[in-house]
Amino acid sequence: MPRARGSGIIVALLAAASAPLVLMYVFLVIETVGEAPPGQLLPDGFTLENWRFLWEDLPGKANIWAVTLNTFIFASATTVIVLAVSSTAGYALSRINLPFRAYFLAGVLVLHAFPTVTLIIAIFLVLQMIGLYNTLTGVILVKASLELPLGIWIMKGFYDTVPWEIEMAGVQDGASRFTVWRRLILPQVTPGILALGVFSFLAGWSEFILPQVLAPDNKVQVLSVYLAGLIADDYDLNFALFKSIGLFYVIPVVILYLFFQDKLMNIYGGGTKG
């Protein structure tokens, strides 16, 4: 079977090429639970010492579970806001004859192109003035609004592929414009909603700079800020601990990818397949 051997060779080559990457991941896991004397590569003992942050608070740091919950609230709330606003705003921009529609679309695109960092000082001042500095609500609102331009554009693209006739038929069948949107049009864009939801959740989960600047306090800390706090202290560096928490931080992301990877592909192939 020359064909099977041919593909076997290709697989072997690919395996060799990706081996360093795989090895690094394996070592990441091993080092969090292994005891190795300095200078030695392979561990000679097993320890959960580096995972102790799960059951006891590290000195001067917040409780890991509270921080995880904060991160989860932060990412989910951002996602909910982004989905709610994008799915309605995208529809309006795609279908309803609004005044200044073209300018609005162009404006949204400009906002998307704007780098977040340039805005951060202004946002900091605004939050401080309205009393939302160092609160989850404040940083959620900021993150959601920065994610919105992309979300609105993606959803508008999905709505654009839904045939007008479906909408006309719905109106003709006696349904209000809102019912048409909810029962006829929204189901056609579910691939977009799902993909956008996963994207915003991951963006929220991995966001660092906004919480770091706008909500650094222990009570409202998220995982990325907690992690950064660990290596801020130059005198007491513990790489194994840092790796363990990093691993803990990335687990939800991996799980999300495992469940949704086929749905994520859909973001390029939306629309009705009727």
């Binding site: 045939p163 006739e165 479906i166 006309m168 038929a169 719905g170 109106v171 003709q172 006696g174 349904a175 209000s176 006829l184 189901p187 056609q188 009705t272 397949k273 009727g274």
Partner: peptide, 19 residues
């Protein structure tokens, strides 16, 4: 409004609801 008129329409593409 179209909703109030009680008119049945068959569109060229049929416009069936795919889902």
């Amino acid at each position: 409004s179209p909703q109030r008129r009680n008119v049945g329409v068959v569109f060229q593409s049929y416009a069936l609801y795919p889902h």
